Simulated assay, not measured.
Amino acid sequence: MIFVDDREPEKVFRMLEEAGVEYEIRRLEVGDFLVVHESYEVAVERKSAEDFVNSTIDGRIFRQHYLLSSRYNLSFIFIIGSIEEVLVRREIRREAVIGALISLAVKKEKGQVVPITFENEFDSILALKYIDSKIRKGELRVFPRVKAKEDYQIAMLTAIPGIGEERAKRLLEKFGNLQRIANASLYELMRVEGIGEKYARRIYDAFRGRKIR
Protein backbone atom coordinates (compact mmCIF):
# COMPACT_ATOMS: atom_id res chain seq x y z
CA MET A 1 0.00 0.00 0.00
CA ILE A 2 1.16 3.51 -0.81
CA PHE A 3 0.23 6.30 1.58
CA VAL A 4 0.34 9.82 0.18
CA ASP A 5 0.64 12.93 2.31
CA ASP A 6 -2.59 14.93 2.20
CA ARG A 7 -0.66 18.13 1.50
CA GLU A 8 0.56 16.97 -1.91
CA PRO A 9 -0.67 19.07 -4.87
CA GLU A 10 -3.64 17.87 -6.90
CA LYS A 11 -1.48 17.08 -9.93
CA VAL A 12 0.31 14.37 -7.94
CA PHE A 13 -2.96 12.54 -7.29
CA ARG A 14 -3.88 12.84 -10.97
CA MET A 15 -0.56 11.28 -11.99
CA LEU A 16 -0.98 8.47 -9.45
CA GLU A 17 -4.37 7.63 -10.93
CA GLU A 18 -3.06 7.88 -14.48
CA ALA A 19 -0.28 5.43 -13.59
CA GLY A 20 -2.78 3.04 -12.01
CA VAL A 21 -1.32 3.37 -8.53
CA GLU A 22 -3.49 2.33 -5.59
CA TYR A 23 -3.05 4.70 -2.68
CA GLU A 24 -4.55 6.10 0.48
CA ILE A 25 -4.32 9.67 1.70
CA ARG A 26 -3.09 10.42 5.19
CA ARG A 27 -1.00 13.02 7.01
CA LEU A 28 2.62 11.85 6.99
CA GLU A 29 5.05 13.18 9.57
CA VAL A 30 8.08 12.42 7.41
CA GLY A 31 8.26 12.18 3.62
CA ASP A 32 5.69 12.67 0.88
CA PHE A 33 5.00 8.97 0.23
CA LEU A 34 5.20 5.89 2.41
CA VAL A 35 5.23 2.42 0.85
CA VAL A 36 4.10 -0.19 3.38
CA HIS A 37 3.68 -3.96 3.19
CA GLU A 38 3.78 -6.12 6.32
CA SER A 39 7.06 -5.25 8.07
CA TYR A 40 8.49 -3.20 5.20
CA GLU A 41 8.33 0.59 5.18
CA VAL A 42 10.04 2.73 2.57
CA ALA A 43 9.70 6.51 2.63
CA VAL A 44 9.99 8.81 -0.37
CA GLU A 45 10.62 12.56 -0.32
CA ARG A 46 10.10 14.33 -3.64
CA LYS A 47 11.75 17.60 -4.59
CA SER A 48 12.09 19.68 -7.69
CA ALA A 49 15.68 20.34 -8.72
CA GLU A 50 15.12 23.98 -7.74
CA ASP A 51 13.96 23.07 -4.24
CA PHE A 52 16.79 20.57 -3.87
CA VAL A 53 19.36 23.26 -4.66
CA ASN A 54 17.67 25.71 -2.27
CA SER A 55 17.47 23.17 0.55
CA THR A 56 21.11 22.21 0.02
CA ILE A 57 22.24 25.82 0.25
CA ASP A 58 20.15 26.71 3.31
CA GLY A 59 20.80 23.38 5.05
CA ARG A 60 17.20 22.09 5.17
CA ILE A 61 18.19 18.94 3.29
CA PHE A 62 20.34 17.77 6.20
CA ARG A 63 17.42 18.01 8.61
CA GLN A 64 15.23 16.08 6.17
CA HIS A 65 17.97 13.48 5.72
CA TYR A 66 18.15 13.02 9.49
CA LEU A 67 14.39 12.63 9.85
CA LEU A 68 14.21 10.05 7.06
CA SER A 69 17.23 8.01 8.11
CA SER A 70 16.37 8.00 11.81
CA ARG A 71 12.87 6.66 11.16
CA TYR A 72 13.22 4.32 8.16
CA ASN A 73 15.85 1.78 7.17
CA LEU A 74 15.52 2.76 3.53
CA SER A 75 14.31 6.04 2.04
CA PHE A 76 14.53 7.77 -1.30
CA ILE A 77 14.79 11.41 -2.27
CA PHE A 78 13.28 11.82 -5.74
CA ILE A 79 14.84 14.86 -7.44
CA ILE A 80 12.82 15.98 -10.44
CA GLY A 81 14.53 18.02 -13.13
CA SER A 82 18.11 19.06 -13.83
CA ILE A 83 20.22 20.33 -10.93
CA GLU A 84 22.87 21.48 -13.39
CA GLU A 85 20.30 23.56 -15.28
CA VAL A 86 19.25 25.30 -12.06
CA LEU A 87 22.84 26.11 -11.15
CA VAL A 88 23.55 27.54 -14.61
CA ARG A 89 20.32 29.54 -14.82
CA ARG A 90 20.76 31.08 -11.39
CA GLU A 91 24.50 31.54 -11.89
CA ILE A 92 25.26 29.57 -8.76
CA ARG A 93 28.78 28.21 -8.61
CA ARG A 94 28.80 24.43 -8.55
CA GLU A 95 31.31 24.55 -5.71
CA ALA A 96 28.61 26.16 -3.56
CA VAL A 97 26.70 22.88 -3.39
CA ILE A 98 29.36 20.24 -4.07
CA GLY A 99 30.64 20.21 -0.49
CA ALA A 100 27.13 20.00 0.92
CA LEU A 101 26.12 17.22 -1.49
CA ILE A 102 29.17 15.13 -0.65
CA SER A 103 28.62 15.68 3.05
CA LEU A 104 25.03 14.49 2.63
CA ALA A 105 26.20 11.38 0.78
CA VAL A 106 28.59 10.28 3.52
CA LYS A 107 26.36 11.06 6.49
CA LYS A 108 25.90 7.98 8.63
CA GLU A 109 22.60 7.73 10.42
CA LYS A 110 20.45 4.68 11.16
CA GLY A 111 18.97 4.18 7.71
CA GLN A 112 20.08 4.63 4.13
CA VAL A 113 18.79 7.57 2.10
CA VAL A 114 19.20 7.23 -1.68
CA PRO A 115 18.74 10.27 -3.94
CA ILE A 116 17.56 9.53 -7.50
CA THR A 117 17.05 12.07 -10.28
CA PHE A 118 14.23 12.02 -12.83
CA GLU A 119 13.64 14.07 -15.95
CA ASN A 120 9.95 14.52 -15.17
CA GLU A 121 7.43 13.96 -12.40
CA PHE A 122 5.58 11.12 -14.08
CA ASP A 123 8.74 9.01 -14.22
CA SER A 124 9.08 9.45 -10.46
CA ILE A 125 5.51 8.18 -10.01
CA LEU A 126 6.37 5.10 -12.08
CA ALA A 127 9.42 4.54 -9.86
CA LEU A 128 7.17 4.74 -6.81
CA LYS A 129 4.90 2.12 -8.37
CA TYR A 130 7.93 -0.08 -9.07
CA ILE A 131 9.10 0.08 -5.45
CA ASP A 132 5.60 -0.83 -4.27
CA SER A 133 5.46 -3.84 -6.61
CA LYS A 134 8.82 -5.12 -5.36
CA ILE A 135 7.72 -4.87 -1.74
CA ARG A 136 4.45 -6.66 -2.50
CA LYS A 137 6.34 -9.53 -4.15
CA GLY A 138 8.87 -9.74 -1.34
CA GLU A 139 11.60 -8.72 -3.77
CA LEU A 140 12.74 -5.50 -2.16
CA ARG A 141 16.32 -6.76 -2.14
CA VAL A 142 16.15 -7.01 -5.92
CA PHE A 143 16.00 -3.23 -6.01
CA PRO A 144 19.62 -2.20 -6.72
CA ARG A 145 20.38 -0.78 -3.31
CA VAL A 146 24.14 -1.22 -3.54
CA LYS A 147 24.26 -0.10 -7.14
CA ALA A 148 22.20 2.98 -6.30
CA LYS A 149 24.66 3.84 -3.57
CA GLU A 150 27.62 3.35 -5.91
CA ASP A 151 25.94 5.44 -8.60
CA TYR A 152 25.34 8.23 -6.12
CA GLN A 153 28.94 8.12 -4.90
CA ILE A 154 30.15 8.38 -8.49
CA ALA A 155 27.73 11.26 -9.10
CA MET A 156 29.09 13.11 -6.07
CA LEU A 157 32.70 12.63 -7.14
CA THR A 158 32.07 13.66 -10.74
CA ALA A 159 30.53 16.89 -9.45
CA ILE A 160 34.10 17.92 -8.60
CA PRO A 161 35.59 19.70 -11.64
CA GLY A 162 37.88 17.42 -13.62
CA ILE A 163 36.82 14.22 -11.87
CA GLY A 164 35.14 12.17 -14.55
CA GLU A 165 33.49 8.80 -14.13
CA GLU A 166 36.71 6.86 -14.74
CA ARG A 167 38.63 8.75 -12.05
CA ALA A 168 35.65 8.43 -9.70
CA LYS A 169 35.60 4.65 -10.16
CA ARG A 170 39.34 4.41 -9.51
CA LEU A 171 38.94 6.40 -6.30
CA LEU A 172 36.15 4.11 -5.11
CA GLU A 173 38.14 1.01 -6.05
CA LYS A 174 41.06 2.32 -4.02
CA PHE A 175 39.23 3.62 -0.94
CA GLY A 176 35.92 1.73 -0.97
CA ASN A 177 33.56 4.59 -0.13
CA LEU A 178 33.22 8.37 0.10
CA GLN A 179 33.95 8.45 3.81
CA ARG A 180 37.44 7.04 3.28
CA ILE A 181 38.05 9.33 0.33
CA ALA A 182 37.02 12.28 2.51
CA ASN A 183 39.50 11.23 5.19
CA ALA A 184 42.37 10.58 2.76
CA SER A 185 45.46 12.77 2.73
CA LEU A 186 46.71 14.55 -0.37
CA TYR A 187 49.49 11.99 -0.68
CA GLU A 188 47.04 9.08 -0.48
CA LEU A 189 44.81 10.65 -3.12
CA MET A 190 47.76 11.26 -5.44
CA ARG A 191 48.64 7.56 -5.34
CA VAL A 192 45.46 6.74 -7.26
CA GLU A 193 46.08 6.28 -10.99
CA GLY A 194 45.06 9.38 -12.93
CA ILE A 195 44.86 11.59 -9.83
CA GLY A 196 47.76 14.01 -9.86
CA GLU A 197 48.42 16.84 -7.45
CA LYS A 198 45.88 19.16 -9.12
CA TYR A 199 42.96 16.73 -8.88
CA ALA A 200 44.01 15.48 -5.46
CA ARG A 201 43.87 19.07 -4.20
CA ARG A 202 40.40 19.59 -5.70
CA ILE A 203 39.08 16.43 -4.05
CA TYR A 204 40.73 17.29 -0.74
CA ASP A 205 39.28 20.82 -0.76
CA ALA A 206 35.80 19.70 -1.88
CA PHE A 207 35.39 17.40 1.11
CA ARG A 208 36.40 20.22 3.42
CA GLY A 209 34.05 22.81 1.95
CA ARG A 210 36.89 24.93 0.61
CA LYS A 211 37.00 26.89 -2.63
CA ILE A 212 37.96 24.58 -5.48
CA ARG A 213 40.62 25.92 -7.81
Rank of each mutant, 00 (worst) to 15 (best):
V106N: 11
G162T: 00
R46F: 07
A155F: 13
Y72S: 00
I2V: 07
S185Y: 12
R201Q: 15
K107V: 13
K108Q: 03
I77E: 01
T117L: 00
D51N: 04
N73V: 09
L68H: 03
I163C: 08
I131M: 02
I154N: 05
M15N: 09
I80V: 14
K108V: 11
D151V: 14
D205C: 13
G81I: 03
Y130S: 10
L126S: 08
I195S: 08
Q153I: 07
E165H: 10
R63A: 13
P115W: 00
I181G: 10
E45L: 15
I212P: 01
R145N: 06
E29L: 12
F33N: 03
R14L: 15
V21L: 09
V21G: 10
Y66F: 12
I80K: 00
E95G: 10
E24I: 07
A127K: 01
I2Q: 06
I125P: 05
L189N: 01
M190Y: 00
M156E: 02
R7F: 10
R7K: 08
L178S: 07
K11T: 14
N177Y: 06
V86Y: 04
D151H: 13
Y66E: 11
R14H: 13
Q179T: 15
I212T: 02
G164P: 10
F118R: 00
M15Q: 08
I212L: 11
K47V: 07
E38F: 09
R180M: 09
I203K: 04
Y204S: 11
K47Y: 03
I160M: 09
R170E: 12
M15I: 11
A182T: 11
F52T: 05
I160H: 07
I98D: 02
A184K: 00
V44G: 10
F62V: 12
Y66L: 12
K147N: 11
V35G: 06
F122W: 02
S82G: 03
A43T: 02
E22I: 10
A148M: 14
G20Q: 04
L126K: 06
L171E: 10
A182D: 08
Y199V: 15
S39Y: 11
L101V: 15
D123N: 08
R213N: 13
I135Y: 01
E165G: 12
Y187I: 12
L74G: 01
S70I: 04
V12D: 06
E10Q: 08
K107F: 12
N183S: 15
E50C: 04
Q112T: 15
V106Q: 07
Y40V: 15
R7W: 03
A159R: 01
F207S: 06
A206L: 04
D205W: 10
Q179D: 14
T158H: 08
S133Q: 04
M190N: 09
E17Q: 14
I57F: 07
Q153M: 13
I61F: 03
L74R: 03
R27E: 15
V142Q: 07
Y23R: 00
R136G: 11
Y72R: 01
I98T: 09
